[in-house]
Simulated assay, not measured.
Amino acid sequence: MQRLRLSTEGTGEDRGQVGIGTLIVFIAMVLVAAIAAGVLINTAGFLQSSAQATGEQSSDSTTNRVQVVGVTGDYFTDNSEVGVVNVTVKRAPGAGNVDLDKTTIQWIGPSGSYYQLASGGAEGDPDGRFVVSTVQDNDDSQPVLNDVEDRFKISLDLGSTKDLNRGDPFGEPLPEGETATLRITSPSGGMTTEEVVVPKTLSGESAVTL
């Protein structure tokens, strides 16, 4: 007689094998989800940090700048030209500390465009160097504007042949009736633009407001 073989289909043994396979797939899905979540969290943190840094830099470049209090000219040449321009500055409203030794100045005038660095500041090869002197400084912080009451004077020597101890000269003296533009850029990138206008006559004057 032929023996009949009992079928194991649908028994507990098959169900156990199916359960193990499902568990393996489930664990794999959990691991993939955990890895993906970690990547997303790291990416979100990096983007947040980058956005915060960019925001701070943008804020600094618009607020951390100087404000021009006044501009004068003196040391007139024999041809009635302004030989030295003095720019009195203070910290702009809402600005943090501004180090004038790390500040750059661009002069755009009739004789061309020139870049200057502070005489005691960063190394480089500028067209000239300006000198910073104290007008008002209660805590002896010069050349750093660290208080709203600080007032410092920036002196620019416009190609004078005299030994004025006003920094390294650049360009040429500014004639009567001429104009020039000053762009003062703080270390954080905040820019202040000032127009300089020489009076039509300098006769009889020792210094003038520009």
Score class of each variant (00 low, 15 high):
165 N>R: 13
200 K>T: 12
140 D>C: 00
176 E>S: 13
92 A>H: 14
162 K>N: 14
175 P>I: 06
40 L>C: 02
83 G>Y: 03
151 R>V: 09
104 T>Y: 03
48 Q>V: 07
43 T>S: 15
3 R>D: 09
65 R>E: 10
182 L>H: 02
145 L>K: 09
9 E>T: 07
112 G>L: 00
148 V>K: 11
127 D>Y: 00
162 K>F: 11
170 F>E: 01
9 E>G: 04
120 G>L: 08
106 Q>S: 12
196 V>G: 01
86 N>M: 04
32 V>K: 04
91 R>A: 15
161 T>R: 08
143 P>G: 04
190 G>Q: 09
88 T>W: 03
4 L>R: 12
141 S>N: 14
37 A>C: 06
189 G>D: 10
156 L>G: 02
69 V>T: 09
144 V>D: 10
24 I>V: 15
108 I>M: 08
14 D>H: 04
182 L>C: 06
98 V>I: 15
52 Q>T: 15
210 L>D: 08
87 V>H: 06
18 V>H: 02
204 G>K: 11
122 A>L: 13
52 Q>C: 00
124 G>M: 08
16 G>R: 12
171 G>M: 01
195 E>C: 00
41 I>G: 01
85 V>F: 03
149 E>T: 15
22 T>D: 14
79 N>Y: 04
96 G>I: 10
82 V>C: 03
114 Y>C: 02
173 P>F: 00
25 V>L: 14
8 T>W: 04
104 T>C: 02
187 P>I: 03
133 S>M: 02
96 G>S: 14
197 V>A: 10
25 V>R: 13
192 T>I: 04
91 R>P: 03
143 P>Y: 07
132 V>N: 02
121 G>Q: 07
197 V>C: 00
33 A>K: 05
89 V>Q: 10
22 T>E: 14
59 S>M: 10
61 S>P: 07
157 D>H: 01
155 S>I: 03
151 R>Y: 05
2 Q>K: 08
83 G>T: 04
13 E>W: 07
117 L>M: 10
145 L>E: 12
100 L>R: 08
126 P>I: 02
63 T>V: 10
26 F>T: 15
172 E>I: 01
33 A>G: 10
201 T>M: 03
68 V>D: 10
16 G>S: 11
178 E>Y: 13
5 R>C: 10
154 I>H: 06
81 E>T: 03
181 T>N: 12
